[in-house]
């Protein structure tokens, strides 16, 4: 049996990958210029504080920043094993608490839009790919490609101009306040969701269209059609199935996007989700928060990829070779 060995190697590869990501997450923040102590002292006190070595050292020691990098890395690894992300420099709170607070804000935006775009995009892509030479379909395909090349944050700005400033239907960004009514939540959520959904739908439909065209040229398709199968029935049974493995890996990439790729949209809508929090952590040199959020996003992407790999392995015997 070759198959366990194959799986084992795959697993090993993912393990190395995760370790590499964890290491990079540790190193990059520390290589960035700028002293994290500035946010611990405050901008105006920092200058005096660095002239008071005793105080300065005491505080760097408190945050573990006086240790050699190797020791810091070891502590970081050990705490990761305990699933303990530690305290954020800038929030002064447990990082798991911060993530528990911010992650739902991102998911509420990205999960519905990802699901929506996968469903709508697949439907549109199948339709476009079928008899793709017709002019109206070609025009729609071109439109999809055009929409996909719009920067999401620009789309966001246009939406804000239209719906918030001119029509006054939605607020200019921000999360809804606590205890907001359902209407207010929908108002706050609608624009970011719309932007993400439009953009992702265009992307998914382009890909699905390509897959459909490719498969519809295969001999088995022509044979099936000649047997007189209905079109809808046919697309579902014969087109969707063979295109599932690539669709799954697309889903994996989309999941990664769901956690981090919404960063620019979050900034444009000043939506305090994960992306925005990571961006703040970069500015404030909040090493622990940066490490934790970055590692978490990467782990989600890696596991989504692993899952897609496993599923396509189960679905498609060809991928086993």
């Amino acid at each position: 049996m070759r198959f366990p060995l194959f799986l084992f190697r795959k697993f090993l590869r993912y393990l190395v990958l995760v370790f590499a990501i964890i290491t990079v997450n540790f190193l990059i923040p520390r290589l960035m210029p700028g002293d994290p102590m500035i946010f611990i002292f405050g901008e105006e006190v920092y200058g005096a504080a660095i002239r008071n070595p005793e105080l300065f050292e005491a505080l760097t020691a408190k945050y573990g920043l006086n240790l050699p990098l190797v020791d810091q890395f070891w502590i970081y690894l050990m705490s990761l094993f305990r699933a303990d992300f530690g305290y954020s420099f800038s929030y002064g709170r447990q990082i798991s608490e911060i993530i528990a607070e911010r992650l739902p804000l991102t998911l509420i935006m990205t999960v519905p839009s990802t699901v929506l775009s996968l469903v709508a995009g697949t439907a549109i892509g199948l339709t476009l790919g079928w008899e793709s030479d017709r002019l109206p379909k070609r025009l729609v395909s071109a439109a999809c490609v055009a929409v996909h090349s719009f920067p999401t944050y620009w789309l966001a700005m246009l939406m804000l101009l239209f719906f918030s400033l001119w029509l006054g239907w939605a607020p200019i960004g921000g999360a809804p306040p606590a205890g907001a009514s359902f209407v207010a939540i929908v108002q706050h959520l609608s624009l970011p969701l719309l932007v993400l959904a439009i953009f992702n739908t265009a992307y998914v439909s382009i890909i699905v269209r390509g897959l459909t065209i490719e498969i519809s040229e295969e001999p088995f398709v022509i044979a099936a059609l000649s047997k007189g199968l209905g079109k809808l029935n046919f697309s579902l049974r014969h087109l969707l199935k063979p295109s599932l493995p690539p669709l799954l890996s697309l889903f994996a990439i989309e999941m990664g996007f769901a956690f981090s790729g919404a960063l620019l949209v979050e900034i444009a809508f000043s939506w305090p989700g994960m992306g925005y929090t990571m961006w703040q952590a970069v500015i404030e040199r909040d090493y622990p928060l940066l490490q934790a959020s970055f590692t978490m996003v990467a782990l989600v992407v890696v596991s989504a990829n692993a899952l897609a790999d496993a599923l396509s392995y189960a679905l498609d015997p060809r991928s086993r070779s």
């Binding site: 739902p104 804000l105 998911l107 999960v111 519905p112 699901v115 996968l118 606590a178 205890g179 939540i185």
Partner: peptide
């Protein structure tokens, strides 16, 4: 699975709002 995930997202969000201090 996708639907459940979406539902979880909504649930998490709803939960987060109900735990917020009510501004009556």
């Amino acid at each position: 699975a996708i639907l459940i995930l979406a539902g979880l997202g909504f649930a998490a969000y709803g939960g987060y709002f109900s735990t917020g201090s009510p501004a009556s």
